[in-house]
Amino acid sequence: MNWLIGAVLFLILAPVAGGLIAGIDRKITARMQGRVGPPLLQPFYDVGKLFEKENVVVTTAQNFYVLVYLIFIALSGALFFAGGDLLLIVFAFTLAHVFLVLGAYAVHSPYSHIGAERELIQLMAYEPMVILAAVGLYMVTNSFYVADIAATTVPAILYLPGVFLGFATILTIKLRKSPFDISTSHHAHQEIVKGITTEFSGSTLAQVEIAHWYENVFLLGFVYLFFSWNPVIGVVAVAITYAAEIFIDNVTARVRWQAALKSGWLAAGILGLGNLAILSYMMLGGA
């Protein structure tokens, strides 16, 4: 019943952890900019506020898609923490994101539409690397199951430094951080207004935000898998990775979609595949 505990804990704790991470993120970002920044709990205030707002829609369908998005993000995160099959989790994630995109399409508004297109481009940019990361972890641990990967005694990172770097690259896309925050951004000013979330407001927007928290926790969990042979190092590495993402966010300009796609694919192609090729060569040699 371990898996059930993992899933339930994720469903309950991930929003808390995700919100806190977002709060810390905003605080650190502010400090990097020489500002005081918002209170630590600001993300919770924001979401709470959004639930207090009037429910305004362009079309009622948008709420449905966002709800499905939230549920499937939570579900795939729960699967992850239940120790499920990594590939299935990745695909479930894609499904969730497609629903967010469909929500943005459904409202039929210019900025939402462009945001949706860009979100799909992002999806296209990071998908190969995520799959390669899963395959890389399989090659090291011989299992696609998160439970097995997490329980491994093999320091995966030593075998998969390239894959990890590649994953860190697309993590920037997934966390919606500069330079790859092209479809919607945490920063207010973007040429497509709020992109994919332009027309979502009130509780719908809050759901998107909560889904994002779930997602972040899942992603950090994924990062942890690279270091899972030693929990202490793992947690530290996750923290450092996240800090590095914040740092990158603060020292780069947003790029165009072409560069985002290219970066994602090159990360997968060079860092990911290169690493895996060497690894499989080593394994063939060893076998």
């Binding site: 500002r35 918002p38 707002k53 000013h189 207004v193 332009t198 979502f200 927007l205």
Partner: peptide, 22 residues
């Protein structure tokens, strides 16, 4: 919004989108 005044201290964000604004 900028460092010297930093209204984000009060949780204020300049959304630029009426659907999100209070």
């Amino acid at each position: 919004l900028t460092p010297l005044y930093d209204v984000e201290r009060f949780g204020i964000i300049n959304t630029g989108n009426p659907k999100h604004a209070d």
